[in-house]
Measured scan of single mutants.
Amino acid sequence: MIINNLKLIREKKKISQSELAALLEVSRQTINGIEKNKYNPSLQLALKIAYYLNTPLEDIFQWQ
């Protein structure tokens, strides 16, 4: 199972779901689904999230 800290990191950086979704060219619902662990992002999307949040990938997504 993958645990993610996306919501915590996104809120710490004061970025809304809508703003992050626009940067990543995905829907706000996609961001919401990832934050709620409804599904895991593709590797490409995970890397883009880490890039736009300027945060190491392993700080956002962790195996458990």
Rank of each mutant, 00 (worst) to 15 (best):
Y39W: 10
K7G: 08
L53S: 01
L43F: 13
N37P: 02
I15N: 02
L6S: 03
I2E: 07
N40L: 14
L45T: 05
W63E: 04
K7F: 06
T55K: 04
Y39H: 10
Q17T: 09
A21T: 03
N5G: 03
T30M: 12
I9G: 02
E58H: 13
A50S: 11
K13M: 14
G33I: 08
I15C: 05
I49Q: 00
K13L: 13
S42A: 06
T55A: 08
K13C: 08
E58L: 09
S27R: 08
A46Y: 03
W63V: 05
Q62L: 08
P56N: 08
N4Y: 01
Q17A: 09
E35G: 01
I2H: 09
E35V: 01
E58N: 14
E19H: 13
K36S: 15
K14S: 12
M1L: 15
T30E: 09
L24E: 00
L57C: 05
K13S: 10
E35F: 02
I2A: 09
K12P: 02
K7Q: 13
K38A: 12
A50D: 01
L57M: 11
I15W: 06
I31F: 03
N40S: 14
E35L: 02
K12Y: 13
L23S: 11
L53W: 03
Y52H: 13
W63Q: 04
L47C: 10
I60G: 01
I34C: 01
M1F: 08
N54K: 12
N37T: 05
L6I: 05
K7E: 13
Y51G: 08
K12A: 14
K36F: 08
N5R: 11
E25I: 06
Y51Q: 12
Q17F: 04
I34N: 00
T30I: 13
W63F: 09
F61G: 01
N4A: 03
K14L: 13
K38H: 15
S42K: 06
K12F: 10
L57F: 07
P41Y: 03
Q17S: 07
D59Q: 14
K14Y: 08
I49T: 03
P41N: 01
A46H: 01
K48A: 11
N4W: 02
A50N: 01
I31S: 01
Q64E: 15
R10I: 03
Q29G: 13
Q64M: 10
K7P: 04
K36N: 15
E11K: 09
I9D: 01
A46T: 04
L8E: 15
P56L: 05
R28P: 15
K14T: 06
S42Y: 05
I60K: 00
M1Y: 07
P41V: 12
L43K: 10
L8I: 15
P41K: 01
N32C: 08
K38S: 13
Y39S: 09
Q62E: 11
A21E: 03
T30D: 07
N32H: 13
K7V: 07
I9H: 07
S16I: 04
I3Y: 07
S18G: 14
I60Q: 01
I3W: 07
Q62H: 08
M1H: 07
E11V: 12
I3A: 08
L20Q: 00
E58C: 09
E58W: 11
E19G: 11
L6H: 02
F61P: 00
Q44C: 10
I60Y: 01
L57G: 02
I2G: 05
N37Q: 09
N5T: 04
L57K: 03
K38Q: 15
T55Q: 06
L20E: 00
A46E: 02
K7I: 06
D59R: 08
K7M: 08
L24V: 15
K48L: 10
Q29P: 06
Y52C: 07
G33W: 13
D59P: 02
E19K: 14
A46R: 05
N37V: 03
S16C: 05
K7R: 15
S42H: 08
L8Y: 10
A22Y: 09
A46S: 06
N4M: 03
F61H: 01
N4Q: 04
Q29K: 14
G33Y: 13
L24D: 00
E19I: 08
K14P: 04
I34L: 07
L8V: 14
I60C: 03
K38D: 12
L53H: 01
L6F: 03
F61T: 01
A22E: 14
Q44T: 13
E25C: 10
L23W: 15
E35N: 01
E11D: 08
K48C: 07
I3L: 15
L43P: 09
N54Y: 06
I2R: 10
K13N: 12
R10T: 02
L23A: 15
K13T: 08
Y51H: 14
S27I: 03
E11Y: 06
P41T: 04
K13Y: 08
A22G: 11
R10P: 01
S18H: 12
I49R: 00
K48T: 06
L53K: 00
S16E: 06
S27M: 04
I34V: 05
E25K: 13
K14Q: 12
I34F: 04
E25M: 10
I2P: 07
N40Y: 13
Y39D: 07
R10V: 03
Q64R: 06
L20P: 00
Y51F: 12
D59C: 07
Y52N: 06
R10C: 04
K12D: 11
L8C: 10
Q17N: 04
Y51N: 10
G33V: 10
K48Y: 05
Q64I: 09
E35Q: 02
N32K: 15
A46G: 09
Q64Y: 08
I2N: 07
I2D: 05
N54Q: 13
N5D: 05
Y51P: 01
L45M: 10
L20C: 02
Q44K: 12
I49E: 00
E25D: 13
V26F: 02
D59I: 08
A46Q: 06
S16P: 06
K13H: 12
I9Q: 06
N40Q: 09
Q44S: 11
S16H: 05
D59Y: 10
N5W: 05
Y39L: 13
S42L: 04
N54M: 12
P56W: 04
I31K: 00
Y52W: 11
V26T: 10
L6Q: 03
R28K: 12
A21K: 02
I15E: 01
N5A: 05
F61K: 00
L43V: 10
A21D: 02
I9W: 06
L8W: 09
Q64D: 15
R28N: 13
S42M: 05
L6G: 01
S42I: 04
A50K: 02
I3N: 08
L53E: 00
R28E: 15
N54E: 14
K14F: 10
Q44M: 11
F61I: 03
S27T: 10
L6E: 01
A22N: 12
A46K: 07
S16Q: 06
I31E: 02
I60P: 00
Q29C: 09
K48D: 07
